[in-house]
Each structure stands twice: as C-alpha cells, then as structure tokens.
C-alpha cells in the first residue's frame, strides 16, 4: 500500500529542510519568549539570519587541524540525516520501501556517531575532542534502548518493512499498547540529534564542544544536519507508533505532516524545559532503567503477538 516514487528524491530534502527551518524558528521563538524579548515574532527569523551570517563568514583555522575529516563531518551528518528519511512514508508515498526499512533508518542515524566524533576530532582542540567523545558515550547509552524500541515496533507488525508496520496499526496505533517504547523512542531521538537535554556534546561547559571551532559554511552544514536529523527522527515516530497517515477527514499525506509537526514541536518544547543531562548520570539510567524497561516492553509485545 506504500508506493515508491522516484521524484520523491527531489521533494524529500525540500520537505525536511522546511521542517528543520520551522523547528529552528520555533526553538528561537521559545528562547526569545523566555528572555522576555519584546517581539518574539522577529526572533523566529533568527535562525535564517544566523544562517546567512554563517554563509559569508570566513572559516576559522586551527593549528594542525585534520581538515579533510573535519569538513567531511558536516556533509556526512547532513546527507545521512536526509537518507534516514528515505524509508519514511509520506501518506502512501515513500522514496524507498526497503524490506529492512527500520534497520536502514537505524543505520543512517548511527552515522551521526561518526560525524559528531569527526567534527570534534578534526579541529585539534581539546574542547572539541571532549565533545566528540561525549557523543560516543551518549551513543552507547541511548543506542541499545533505541534498538530494542525499533525492534518492538517491528515485532508488533512482524516485519521490518515500514509499510507493514503502518498497515499493522489500522485498528490500533502502536503508541496505545507500546507506551514505554514510544517514550523511549522520543528520548533517543533527542539524544541522537544531540538536541534538547542531550546536548552534552555541544554544551556550554566545554565552550560548545564539537561546535567550538566550527565556523562559516562548515558550521552551517553541521547545524543544519543536526536539525534535519531531529526532523527525520520525529518523522519516523509517525509510521512507527502513530499510525502513519491514518486519520479522519484529511488526506493521509497531510496527516503525516501534521503528526510530524506535532511530534517535532513537542520534542523542541520539551528539550528546552530540562537542563543538559550529563553522560555520567544518563549512562547508568540508560543501562539500569531504560534497557530493562524496553526489554520488558518487547517481551510484552511478543507475548501479545504470539
């Protein structure tokens, strides 16, 4: 019931880009409102203004930087973030309907591990490197629960194909009977896009971490990649847990967009409500609480399926 469309290759980056700009604008508006700025509406344009500034900014150089790997980091992050959405259906169209779509999505988001580490490594700066290593630690913390959650959704449908997972939710959305999996999925989406409370890799206590020395176009590409990754994660929540495009009145592609926007807005909003979660604390929570919780959820789902 999901058909693949070739022209979607052209449309996908545009949609993701619009969502990313929208999310960044929403984030900037929330920040302006907290700071008590008189006109929060003009703050919504702040991301575009700073993007334009970065475009004309000259690159900062650091001593003995590994320029090749450093420049590659942003490109890799952006491309992988777009590719992650290759299997996400928009209503009934998807760019690629792989038989192992869920695994593909997971593989593309793992690319962020490499990209963020490279961005930290390339600058030859202590703060950047600390940020890069923090993200690897964060990856080890969120990835296992995340994988179990993806497995749980696939278990419920009995297939790794995203279209089958959507089809399995015709009667009952997965979010209803897999609430733990859904919650952990949202957490790990924030963590994999190092956004919200999981921005330890780029936090202010290490002068911006992997972003510390990134400047100009490189920084723009990297930050854009990060927002697109968050969008990709939020968009995948819709077919995995929220019934894909199903809904009354509106056409299913519109429902997908609406649900994605809601999930994205909730993630951005929640991310601002909580201070940065440091890895030494999150690691233990993740392994002692989240992994058992997701395993129990997977067990429950497999019992129901059987």
């Amino acid at each position: 019931m999901v058909e693949t469309t070739a022209w979607g290759v052209l449309l996908l980056p545009v949609i993701l880009g619009l969502f990313a700009v929208g999310a960044a604008a929403f984030d900037a508006t929330l920040a302006a409102r907290a700071a008590g700025v008189a006109a929060p509406r003009s703050a919504a344009l702040a991301p575009l203004r700073s993007a334009a500034g970065l475009l004309v900014q000259q690159r900062r150089r650091t001593l003995a930087a590994d320029t090749l790997l450093w420049r590659a980091a942003g490109m890799v992050l952006l491309v992988a973030a777009v590719l992650a959405s290759l299997v996400t259906p928009l209503g009934q169209w998807a760019v690629g309907d792989l038989s192992a779509g869920v695994v593909w999505f997971n593989a593309m988001e793992i690319v962020a591990w490499a990209a963020v580490w490279l961005a930290g490594w390339g600058a030859n700066s202590a703060f950047g490197l600390v940020g890069g290593y923090r993200f690897v630690a964060q990856g080890l913390a969120y990835e296992l629960p995340h994988m179990f959650v993806l497995t749980t959704a696939a278990l419920g449908a009995g297939s790794l194909r995203v279209a089958d997972i959507v089809a399995a939710q015709q009667d009952l959305w997965f979010v209803v009977w897999m609430p733990v999996a859904f919650a952990v999925y949202l957490l790990s989406v924030l963590a994999m896009a190092f956004a919200g409370p999981f921005n330890h890799a780029v936090s202010s206590d290490v002068a911006g971490g992997v972003l510390a020395e990134l400047s100009g176009v490189d920084r723009l590409v990297f930050v854009a990649g990060r927002w697109v990754l968050l969008v990709s994660g939020a968009a995948m929540a819709v077919p995995l847990f929220l019934g894909g495009g199903s809904g009354p009145l509106l056409p299913d592609w519109l429902w997908t967009l609406v649900k994605t926007a809601l999930v994205l807005a909730a993630l951005v909003w929640a991310g601002r409500r909580v201070p940065t979660i440091r890895m030494e604390r999150f690691e233990e929570i993740s392994w002692m609480v989240l992994i058992p919780a997701t395993l129990l959820q997977a067990l429950f789902v497999s019992l129901v399926v059987i």
Binding site: A31, A34, G36, D205, R272, V274
Partner: peptide, 16 residues
Amino acid sequence: LLAIAGWADAAAVARR
C-alpha cells in the same frame, strides 16, 4: 549556574 547546567530558559528569566 543554570546557564552552564544547560537550562537556558530559566537562566534567561533570572538574568531578566
């Protein structure tokens, strides 16, 4: 302290 702890919004209110 709040800003370094990564809670930008609460820090912004305190500054205001």
